[in-house]
Design a protein around this nucleic acid. Structure first.
Length: 473
DNA sequence: CTATGGCACGGATT
DNA sequence: AATCCGTGCCATAG
């Protein structure tokens, strides 16, 4: 009687704290958790880190490749539907993976550099070329950049602040603009594009009329008013299309965004390649016939536990310390429990998710099955918000080496969008949105004409009357 | 008249 | 409760 009473009162605050914390942990990315753990480790003596890799499922030691012999060994290698979970690891940039970070460029150390913030990054590049007072100006300019990488303060403002002439400011700005990411420190997308063009013109051919379009018809361009551009600048529609395509593929109107790789340019999922993923899915030995390997990246290598020595010590704790030590112990065990809980949830989530979407993982966008978070939550018997948190703020690397947000697994329209993309790619003569609706209806997909238009826009496909001439690839 | 984009509404999803 | 998404209606361009 007395015991249960006591157990309850002790249990409740702990479990609710556990729940609350687990929830917050669940919503964090590997990076954020890493930070949290590091800080806890540094202040809490009761917490101990063991550098040994263990299976997230059964907590047994793993083989060298990080595969749990206990959990996954008995399964046959030929079974395509097998999904194997391997130990979370923190050093995901193994030699074989190093090319992920920059499939387009060969600069090797983009990864090390992308962690620092944009102003620092730029300043480091141009620093050597600057005089002392130019440096001050540059620093001032750079800290004033907005998230798009544009300068927000006016030249005159700075000039009067530093008692120098505006032209000297301009000089510094120009240097900044030619640093990587190309075009930072411009005032608007238009200027950024011009800088990029100037730079690229020595490296590749720029389609005829590109400068003119950007300089004189930028607003028309972003609104897709190609006819008008054509009239104003006397360029053919074909030329304008080339220009548009060139800009879309080679330039970036928002230099700051590319730097962060944020998901702000919806049509360009490639940019997300620069994110460190929270989960990696790959084939065993990179062989598509073999099992899928799912790795959930852990914030730290090894695992955490409550330090047994500290626990012992606590029994003989001096009066004055009892309180504080107990606090430490509680926090340590809470953290460990939370992390285990989080891991457990993530593993279960990915298990069902990859199983359901294995075709998507293996064969790409077209084979995605529309799934909602709510459905998954029922299958796993957890609250919807749990799944929501588990999915948010996380990215996955697919065997194709693309890094996408985990939420893409729940993209209801991705499969239809790919069909449309394929349809347009293989079309003989341009299909109008209405035609596409017909075809889709024939395939058993029932959506409105207006929706097709939206999907088209999402995929960056021009309207039918503008894509009649050249067909790319 | 046809094709498409903008705005806004309502239901689903988170 | 807030947000997202598909859709209908209407304006506009060709």
């Amino acid at each position: 009687m007395y015991q249960t009473q006591k157990a309850k009162t002790e249990l409740r605050p702990v479990t609710s704290a556990l729940l609350a914390q687990t929830m917050t942990f669940l919503g964090m990315s590997a990076d954020e958790i890493r930070e949290r753990i590091e800080s806890e480790l540094s202040i809490n003596p009761a917490l101990e880190r063991i550098d040994e890799r263990i299976c997230p499922n059964c907590r047994r030691p793993l083989s060298e490749q990080g595969i749990c012999m206990h959990c996954s060994a008995p399964k046959s290698e030929d079974d395509k539907n097998d999904i194997v979970f391997v130990s979370p690891r923190d050093d995901f940039m193994l030699p074989g993976y190093s090319s992920y970070s920059d499939p387009y460029q060969n600069e090797p150390d983009i990864d090390s550099v992308q962690r620092e913030d944009l102003p620092t990054y730029v300043l480091r590049q141009i620093g050597p070329d600057l005089l002392e007072d130019q440096k001050k100006i540059a620093a001032y300019l750079l800290t004033g950049l907005n998230e798009d990488g544009f300068i927000t303060t006016s030249t005159y403002e700075i000039a009067s602040y530093y008692h120098v002439s505006p032209s000297e400011i301009e000089e510094v700005i120009e240097l900044i603009q030619h640093a990587d990411p190309l075009g930072v420190g411009s005032r608007d997308p238009q200027e950024a594009l011009m800088v990029q063009i100037q730079h690229l013109s020595s490296l590749m051919t720029i389609p005829y009329g590109t400068r003119e379009v950007i300089e004189n018809a930028y607003d028309l361009l972003i609104h897709g008013k190609y006819r008008e551009i054509s009239k104003n600048l006397s360029l053919s529609m074909k030329q304008i299309q080339m220009v548009e395509k060139f800009i879309r593929e080679n330039l970036n109107p928002f230099p700051g965004r590319a730097f962060w790789g944020e998901n702000v340019i919806p049509n360009d999922r490639d940019l997300e390649t620069f994110h460190q993923p929270d989960i990696i899915i790959s084939y065993l030995n990179d062989d598509p016939k073999k099992q899928l390997i799912v790795e959930i990246i852990m914030p730290i290598s090894g695992y955490l536990q409550v330090n047994p020595l500290f626990k012992n010590e606590y029994r003989n704790a001096p009066e004055t310390k009892v309180e504080a030590w107990k606090n430490d112990l509680d926090r340590a065990s809470l953290l460990v429990k939370c992390l285990n809980q989080r891991n457990n949830t993530m593993v279960r989530l990915m298990q069902t998710l990859v199983e359901l979407q294995s075709d998507f993982v293996r064969h790409g966008d077209g084979s995605i099955v529309p799934i909602t978070r709510a459905q998954i939550s029922k299958m796993l018997d957890v609250h919807e918000s749990t799944i929501s948190r588990a999915v948010s703020n996380k990215t996955v690397m697919l065997p194709s080496r693309k890094v996408i947000p985990l939420s893409s697994f729940f993209d209801r329209s991705l499969n239809v969008r790919t069909i449309i993309k394929d349809l347009v790619r293989d079309e003989q003569k341009p299909l109008s949105d209405a035609k596409i609706v017909d075809i889709l209806t024939g395939m058993g997909i029932d959506i409105a004409r207006r929706t097709v238009a939206k999907y088209r826009a999402m995929e960056g496909i021009l309207p039918a009357h503008l894509r009649n001439m050249v067909k790319m690839r």
